[in-house]
């Protein structure tokens, strides 16, 4: 299996693959967003307790899921770059970081907007909010380290170590913060046998989660191409590729 995917792990082929894939991914995410938002904002009934304001869940929950998912992608890509010297791993890790930070910020901002009518305050010192905020700081630390080291390869290696340490630490931080204080409502969707949510509300949520994922992949392809341009700026293949594009 590794052999089959190996050609795409070279920046040269990935550059082309990303170029070909990104319009499709943008299209897919647009369709999913349209379906999810219609389902969530128009078709789903209002919540019997939270009224119309529960609808922010369709942005809040997918972005909170993505914030953790993107960190995992970033750390795995960084590990691949660090351990097996896969160039593409360095590129993907670096491209992931600002996206993950944005998703984390979105989760915090929407959660805060939701908290104002529900809890009567923008911010509470609750375990999930606090660990999400710490996750944002972990992303920002990663970004700061990346911008402090000028050589991109060295920055990628250092960043990979930091991301892996972060992955080990995230559960520790999360459970220590849970130990410290908790107020947030329990997880609604993780109980797969009987989710404590009506199907008409659940389906748009899952559609939105898929839409976020497709959008993430689409933007990741664009960002990865930009990173490839920077990483490989002095290589012959890139020059040939760019002059091809200019003439065609």
């Amino acid at each position: 299996m590794f052999k089959r995917f190996h050609p795409y792990a070279s920046p040269k082929h990935f550059h082309r693959l990303a170029q070909r894939l990104s319009p499709w991914l943008f299209g897919l995410s647009a369709v999913l967003f349209a379906a999810g938002l219609t389902g969530g904002l128009v078709l789903a009934p209002a919540d019997y307790q939270q009224g119309e304001s529960f609808r922010i869940i369709y942005l809040h929950v997918p972005s909170a899921w993505m914030s953790m998912f993107v960190y995992l992608v970033m750390a795995s890509a960084g590990a691949a770059g660090l351990i097996w010297k896969v160039k593409l791993g360095d590129i993907i890790a670096r491209a992931c970081a600002p996206l993950g930070a944005s998703f984390t910020f979105l989760a915090l901002a929407t959660g805060s907007l939701w908290g104002k009518p529900m809890w009567g305050t923008w911010w509470v010192w609750d375990a999930r909010l606090t660990s999400e905020l710490i996750l944002l700081f972990l992303y920002l630390g990663y970004l700061a380290l990346q911008s402090a080291i000028e050589d991109r390869r060295a920055a990628a290696r250092a960043g990979a170590v930091l991301a892996i340490v972060g992955v080990v630490n995230i559960p520790i931080i999360h459970y220590s913060v849970v130990w410290w204080s908790t107020l947030h409502q329990g997880a609604t969707v993780s109980k797969f046998d009987a989710p404590s949510m009506a199907t008409s509300m659940l389906i748009p949520l899952l559609l939105m989660a898929l839409a976020f994922k497709a959008y993430f992949l689409a933007v990741l392809m664009v960002r990865a191409r930009c990173e490839i341009l920077a990483f490989e700026q002095h290589t012959a293949w890139l020059r040939a590729e760019l002059s091809d594009e200019r003439t065609s």
Partner: peptide, 30 residues
């Protein structure tokens, strides 16, 4: 670990604090 990651960088102390403080939270809590 953070010190090793930032060794020889300009403005290292601030960067070091940014990287380290989130990882110190469990110790502070307990």
């Amino acid at each position: 670990l953070a010190s090793a990651l930032t060794v020889g960088l300009r403005g290292g102390t601030m960067l070091l604090a940014l990287i380290t403080l989130p990882l110190y939270i469990p110790v502070l809590i307990f």
